[in-house]
Design a protein around this nucleic acid. Structure first.
Lengths: 216, 216
DNA sequence: CTCTATACGGAGAGATCACTCCGCTTAGAC
DNA sequence: GTCTAAGCGGAGTGATCTCTCCGTATAGAG
């Protein structure tokens, strides 16, 4: 499964012009998906990038592959933010991470529906780091002890819902919603009434979530 | 704007067979949109309903009109649940409503992305009722006083995000997330750090939210 | 400068979709 | 039973999308 056409693989270095076109295409895709959603046509992306469709398809064998490359970029940045947050000494890492990653996602909203959808190793890595952040936050009593890491996954879907709805008009509205979520995560006398989602179920959720483009 | 082809208008009573086909089409649409999302083809809906495409298009002049009819059904039910909740005497109306309407939406998930998107009178009505529920809940000190009704709108987008992600695999996961949201809504010493969305902005959000199908 | 592997553009193939049109059928009033 | 307004089915239209193919252009090694 460690296939080709991924990120900056060292399979064979691209010719200089080709490498530049690749970057132009990625940038154009971010912009176009952001403005029009994942249903935007590849023709439009090529136009914005200033290259032909043929060029796009040599670089990314399929529209999905292009989206996938973008998703990898976002996941990579997210993982980096989680790593940084782990180093926070006072148990605030989780909160910092949620704020930072949401802010980043707000600026790369185009392909968010696909973010957690794929079976990348990266998703697992991200989830493990987030779980670590949660443990640490509990240790410092900043987060209620009956909160699970699956709850955090749900919280990210939740933020995604808010982002998708509000982003074009109120680009900061998600911050207020995150306030509310974190308020709910604080330690409290009463436990949350319902049982948390099992990690097995969550795995299935992530494997299923929104086919949108895939089914063509 | 009080146009034709709406719900059970009394413009001219439909012929008996036609009325029945209309119901079959609505039921089929619920099922198909639920399984395949709003991108499902109208041909498929007609097939499931057991009628021809022509029949579908005489009853609903456009795919959008069909979706709209479904949205009206959901909104109607939602408004009814809000009305019921207003009658709760102990300030628990808001919580009851959130639980009941989410449960209902979980069973009509197909066209949720369009739920709050349209400019119906019904949306305004629903929002007014929800605002009333909020006031009442604050009066009984069940909900923090710095929570606004726009926060509740964000919470509904949030639930929608969770529903869309989890529904097929974990049909009850939203309950746990609602627990978390409500925990955050409870009175607390500290105010939420960020300012709430203004109602004017929220209006724009609702007017913009996800074109998905409209733009064809 | 030469030469070739690599890259480029974009017309067009093939699918799929929403929607229309029209000849046939039928509910239901009389 | 008759008659007709209302309803029906589904082939066909035109738009749009992803992806392919191939003649042309060029980077860059020798």
């Amino acid at each position: 499964m460690t296939s080709a056409t991924n990120t900056a693989n060292l399979e064979r270095p691209l010719r200089k012009d080709a490498a530049q076109h690749r970057q132009q295409l990625l940038a154009a895709a971010v912009q176009v998906f952001d403005e029009q959603g994942l249903d935007a046509s590849v023709t439009e992306i090529a136009r914005v990038a200033g290259v032909g469709i043929g060029t796009l398809y040599r670089r990314f064998p399929t529209k999905d592959a292009l989206i996938d490359a973008l998703v990898r970029e976002i996941l990579g940045a997210t993982i980096q933010m989680a790593r940084d947050a782990v180093r926070a000494p006072d148990g605030t890492g989780l909160e910092r991470f949620l704020e930072a990653s949401s802010a980043y996602q707000a600026e790369h909203a185009g392909c968010l529906p696909r973010l957690w959808n794929t079976d990348h190793e990266m998703v697992k890595t991200a989830r493990q780091l987030i779980a670590k952040l949660l443990v640490d936050a509990k240790k410092h009593d900043r987060i209620r002890h009956d909160l699970t890491s699956t709850d955090l996954s749900l919280a990210m879907f939740s933020l995604l819902g808010v982002l998708e709805a509000t982003l074009p008009v109120a680009p900061d509205a998600w911050r207020r919603h995150l306030d509310l979520l974190i308020a709910g995560m604080r330690p409290a006398a009463l436990n949350l009434p319902h049982r948390a989602l099992s990690t097995a179920s969550l795995d299935k959720v992530l494997a299923t979530h929104i086919p949108t483009v895939a089914a063509r």
